[in-house]
Amino acid sequence: MASRSGITLARIAGTPIRFQYSWFLVTAAIVVLFGPQVSRIFPEIGLGAYAVALGYALLLMLSVLAHELAHALSARVFGWPSTEIELNLWGGHTQFVAHDATPGKSLAVSLAGPAANLVIAGVGWALIQALEPTAVVGLLAEVTVLVNLLVGLFNLLPGNPLDGGRLVESVVWQITGDQGRGMLAAGWAGRAVVGLLVGFVMWQVFLAGPQTNLVLVVVATMICFFLWQGAGESIRIARARLRRSAEEGISDRLRG
């Protein structure tokens, strides 16, 4: 089923899986960027190198989908129904209705995604060691491990909108008893993460000099922009919640 922002290609456990059109642009970019690299590694397969690069994109899709399904399934454990899983330019997003949320439940659902990727990476690495696959199969197996490791670790960075931001939010929420304060702290932590990433990218640029990988710089810049926006949205929502709570508190005192 198509919509203005994407297309629903499947349902898993009743939850629609929607692909934004930007996801197909990501797939095309991966094929174009990595096809020549695969061709240099395996010149004998000719244009088949682009099919292998498409395999990269499919593995990324499956890794992100596993991540989001882990969120959805762990939310169901707490009775929180998932309404949609979306794959987009920045990875994915799971929407669910959280009833009677607590810091512990929120943290468990958030960390389930990275945990799933790290488990896949660990199992994949163990299978590579045991089976020792070679050629294209070996390459795709290594890509599976690397992609899941990167997705898992990156999402553990402690700041919104990443899953690790929920750790900051939950700790502050538990201490203060106010989720809004937790969201505010996680938003500012997210901006701090962006600052560190920008510093790392600049260090890489100056270190590499003329050999700078422009593709890496562009991708990193886009990621930083996305994270900054997400962190800013978290701060905006948190401030609105805190302002509303303060106004309700004043109203209650006036009525009292």
Rank of each mutant, 00 (worst) to 15 (best):
S82K: 04
G230Q: 11
F19K: 09
L157R: 09
L60I: 13
L214A: 08
L207K: 13
F34V: 09
H71V: 00
L254A: 07
I41K: 05
P114Y: 00
Q179Y: 03
V172I: 13
L167Y: 05
G165V: 06
V26I: 15
L33P: 03
A49N: 06
L59V: 15
V171T: 10
V147K: 04
M1Y: 07
L254D: 10
A53R: 09
V172W: 02
V147L: 14
W203H: 09
S3T: 15
V151S: 02
V136D: 08
L184M: 09
V119N: 00
T94W: 06
G35V: 05
L54I: 08
A220R: 07
F19I: 10
T15Y: 03
L60G: 07
I235L: 03
M183C: 01
L131S: 12
L73G: 02
I85V: 14
Q20C: 12
V171K: 06
A28P: 09
T15Q: 05
L73M: 13
F19Y: 14
V52C: 07
R255Q: 06
M183L: 12
L197Q: 12
A135E: 14
T8I: 15
A126S: 01
A13Q: 11
Q174S: 15
T212K: 02
S106E: 10
V193Q: 06
R18V: 13
Q37A: 12
R255F: 08
M1C: 06
A70E: 02
I237P: 00
G165E: 07
G91L: 10
A208D: 08
I12Q: 04
V147A: 11
G182K: 09
T94A: 10
L227A: 10
P43V: 10
S110C: 00
A189N: 07
L156R: 02
I30V: 15
G35P: 04
V217P: 06
A10Q: 09
D163Y: 04
R18S: 11
T221I: 04
K105E: 11
L33H: 12
Q95I: 08
A72R: 02
M202W: 13
V52W: 05
V26C: 08
S39Y: 09
W203I: 07
V26S: 05
G91Q: 11
V172D: 02
G182Y: 10
S22P: 05
S251W: 08
G48D: 11
I30F: 13
Q20A: 14
L60K: 05
L107A: 08
E86W: 04
V205I: 15
G104Q: 12
W228R: 12
D100Q: 13
G165L: 07
V201Y: 03
K105R: 15
A192P: 04
I120S: 00
L156T: 01
I223M: 14
G46L: 03
V31F: 07
L184V: 03
